[in-house]
Design a protein around this nucleic acid. Structure first.
Lengths: 159, 159
DNA sequence: CTATACATTCAAATGAAATGCATCTAATAT
DNA sequence: ATATTAGATGCATTTCATTTGAATGTATAG
């Protein structure tokens, strides 16, 4: 079982924004941090903006910031949004759907999953914020280009 | 968030086996029940056999049965196997991995998810077994001496 | 007015999952 | 013993959702 990459990137973007405090961070900056597609990240960010997780500022020196303090944004709420409300399985067309108890059980399990994540906030993830800031402040790989070919394999030993 | 189709099909096969009691059910029969690929299901079943969830019987009149009673097989155990042990996210190459607390939180949430499913057994899913049996006994070309050239074109119309 | 950055849409590339086919091994009815 | 059935395994192909790229529009600072 995997989180969709959509959720993965949303989470990463939110972490970087949490680390940046009040400062605006551009989508391009974030996409370069993680070596992901600018276009794709843009769509994810739009979705986050629509849902009220981030504020977007257009025009020169525009960018993003968290719409609320990091401690008020739970991972559960974030994932409930990015993962959508669909069930864990698609029962359309399944012969036994009328007599199958599985969907309910899976829904209950999913709720338990999200409940745990409701207990964690964005600032818990970014608790070692000074370390994170140091990582984010590094000139991410290449300069302004849409194809950062330099894979960052940073496997630095922890503190 | 979705279960892999691999897990989905494994679950469906196990439910049909649970419904069949001691009787052997062939892979082909199951694949026709759900309108899925015989080859693909075979690989899934092999995995289930390897893990000790089902017994396979080769040769004429061969097939599958549960290796243990349905009430002794939990959904959690099943999914732990079919979903593999990998984490919910792939952090290899992620810039902030050294300072990111997310993987641990996700692992905790996943454990809560599986814990719920540990509490449900195969026979809970198939509790309305008489209804299920009626559904399983219905598929086309069922009965003694089925045609080996039977085309598996059964496409369940779905919205 | 111009440069920058978010907003929106659509087409194309990518890659994992699923499928189909060929071949092998094992069990059993005749 | 032989033919037949059904699972075991490997490989090539197809399918499909995700991801990416490109083109265009909108808003804002200087």
């Amino acid at each position: 079982m995997k989180l969709s990459r959509h959720s993965d990137y949303a989470l990463r973007a939110m972490i970087q924004l949490a680390s940046a405090g009040d400062e605006l961070v551009s989508i391009r900056r974030i996409s370069e941090t993680y070596g992901i597609s600018h276009s794709h990240l843009m769509k994810i960010v739009q979705s986050l903006g629509h849902a009220g997780f981030v504020e977007t500022v257009r025009g020169r020196h525009g960018g993003l910031r968290l719409a609320r303090p990091a401690r008020e944004i739970s991972l559960g709420a974030l994932l409930r949004h990015t993962e959508g409300e669909d069930g864990l399985v698609d029962c359309t067309g399944c012969l036994i759907a009328p007599a199958c108890g599985l969907p309910g059980m899976l829904a209950e399990a999913l709720e338990a999953f999200l409940k745990v994540l409701d207990g964690y906030r964005l600032d818990d993830v970014a608790s070692r914020s000074h370390v994170l800031r140091a990582l984010f402040d590094r000139p991410a790989s290449a300069g302004p280009g849409d194809t950062p070919s330099a894979r960052c394999d940073a496997r630095q030993a922890g503190p």
